[in-house]
Amino acid sequence: MTGRLRRLKQLLAGGWSRTALALPFLALVLIMALDWFSKTEVTVEPALTSAPALAAVVCRRTWYPLLIGGITLLCAFLMAAYNGVLADSVHTASVLAIVLVTLIGWVSAVLRMRQERALADARLVAEIAQRVLLRSVPERVGTVRAAVHYAAAAAHARIGGDLYEVVNTRHGVRAVVGDVRGKGLGAVETAAAVLGAFREAAHQEHELDRVAAWLADSLDRSLRENGHDLLGEEFVTLVLIGVRPDGVAEMVNCGHPAPVLLRDGEPVRLLEPVTPVPPLGVLPPEAVRPPVRRMAIRPGDRILLYTDGMIEARDSAGRFYPLLERLPGCAQAGGPVEVLERLHLDVVRHVGRQLGDDAAMLLLQYEPVTLPEQLPRPNGHIPQRN
């Protein structure tokens, strides 16, 4: 359905673009018809300046205002000859006004094209930066199926202060979702430091709390190197989750919204931390030793990690988005990608406009892969490894 709506919008946009190109010609026809059928001695020749003005607005081609300006000048001379005012000052003033408006339209079209090219280059840079900083998550990572959805609050931006990552390590699948305080380049810079540290620590550290300590140390060093330590207010909320090969999920929460567990036949529930821990950057790195929550998970269990841009989204009446109430309906069918798409659309409908904050969602669905040597033989026995 989403693809059909997108194609419909593209068709409508193309139709409007072709219609808009005809507006200057329509204006010329109407003005000349008005002059032809007018019974008064008042000339409407100055109104011809509206045609090149419209051309500068409706078209992004630099030659179009010049074309319409030339046609308009021809119409002005024909109109003046018909009315017998070629030598009058009103005709001279009209010609000068048409030339001036045409030149202004041409200059504005040139400047607009330069701005659009600069914006396109900026979007390309942002897309490349996103691929480096926020890499795409494969559909399957080890024993889980994964999907991510990210929307930056800044207009035309593709990256912001929210961060996510999923990696497959010898300790199992490990993931992080976090939120950097603030927006802009400073938040992106901090997010890059945290993600770089996670991608290394997730493979090196055996315990998840040690991964959090590694991130705290890297964050502190990054803030000091960039001069943010003088503010004393820079911090990052995040939640770490690990799915071990034996089907045990481990979670570390540092001041972040609690993940949500979806299990068939049970109501959704928050996975609150064992003990509340402040965000990274509040305590000295050596004091960061968050407790690890462990729980057994079953095949088909889904864990949703998200940032506060989701739960703090308000509608026109100021009501927060009720995630726990709306999530079951969005997660009734489909894989992780479809669930996150429905959830995002539901949040946008709740707000009624673009989200005012960065919003990231990561959904992990536990689906362990059965190895060929573990499949049962016809006699019902499972071969054992030597």
Rank of each mutant, 00 (worst) to 15 (best):
A22S: 13
Y321G: 00
L371I: 08
D209E: 03
L323A: 07
A258V: 07
P336G: 09
R385N: 08
L223S: 00
C75E: 10
A193V: 11
I71K: 04
D35V: 06
A126D: 04
G265N: 11
L23W: 06
V348L: 08
D246C: 10
L304C: 03
V173N: 01
D358M: 06
H350N: 06
A317I: 00
T62V: 15
E189V: 14
V137A: 03
V42Q: 12
H344W: 05
V90I: 13
R342A: 02
R114W: 12
I303M: 10
A287W: 09
E266N: 13
P138Y: 08
V132F: 02
E250Y: 02
A155N: 05
V110P: 00
V42G: 07
E367T: 14
F37I: 14
W16A: 14
G247Q: 06
M310A: 13
A147W: 02
H149C: 05
H203M: 10
V57Y: 09
T237Y: 01
V188K: 00
V137I: 12
I104T: 12
A27D: 04
E338T: 07
V95H: 01
T72F: 11
R263S: 15
E165L: 11
D162L: 07
D88Y: 06
G242H: 02
L305Q: 00
L12Q: 14
K183G: 08
D315W: 01
T102V: 08
G247M: 07
A331E: 02
A93F: 07
E338V: 03
